[in-house]
Design a protein around this nucleic acid. Structure first.
Lengths: 79, 79
DNA sequence: GATAAATATCCGATTTTTGGATAATCGGAA
DNA sequence: TTCCGATTATCCAAAAATCGGATATTTATC
């Protein structure tokens, strides 16, 4: 946890991605590779060190089969 | 559009926000103010000069009453 | 055209991101 | 437990993006 953008909801996003990635049986390296990025890219996202925009979220979600609408629902219910 | 990473889908997000903001009757200044940001913040978002993370999108959507699930649906259908 | 409101642009200071290298951690096997 | 390979986390400096005050431009209304 290093950067400034730490909110409860940012944490939720990071955690949802990390958990679902593992559930789906991927390593950070594998997901990163599919996105043409490097492993630290995923590490930074999952640790919450890096912000993630909507388009990126959808790209990742598609790979790891993350339920984005459900995540958004939980985010909306959180302040 | 000045920065490097602009995709069709990023454009869609920017445009959806701009259009809905106007539809909802807000100025960039008003939305920015509610978010404790400055007017160029919204200008940069709507012009696609600035990426917008999921949490920010939800914050903005709540103010301008943007249908996020619908936007996401359109994003998923676009490559 | 004149004016005001709204939006876009400029730009330098600051912050964030990047990714190669490497360290630390985890998991399974023997 | 110890070893080993796989996975994840951390470091860091260069590159890129963001910030916001000031200002320019556009738009709307008269």
């Amino acid at each position: 946890m290093r950067k400034s953008i730490r909110s409860k909801r940012h944490e939720m996003v990071a955690q949802a991605i990390g958990e679902q990635r593992i559930r789906a049986g991927f390593t950070q390296y594998e997901v990163a590779r599919r996105l043409d990025r490097h492993q630290p890219f995923m590490a930074n996202i999952e640790s919450g060190d890096r912000r993630i925009d909507v388009v990126e979220l959808l790209d990742i979600a598609e790979i790891i089969d993350l339920d984005v609408p459900a995540l958004i629902g939980r985010l909306r219910a959180t302040r």
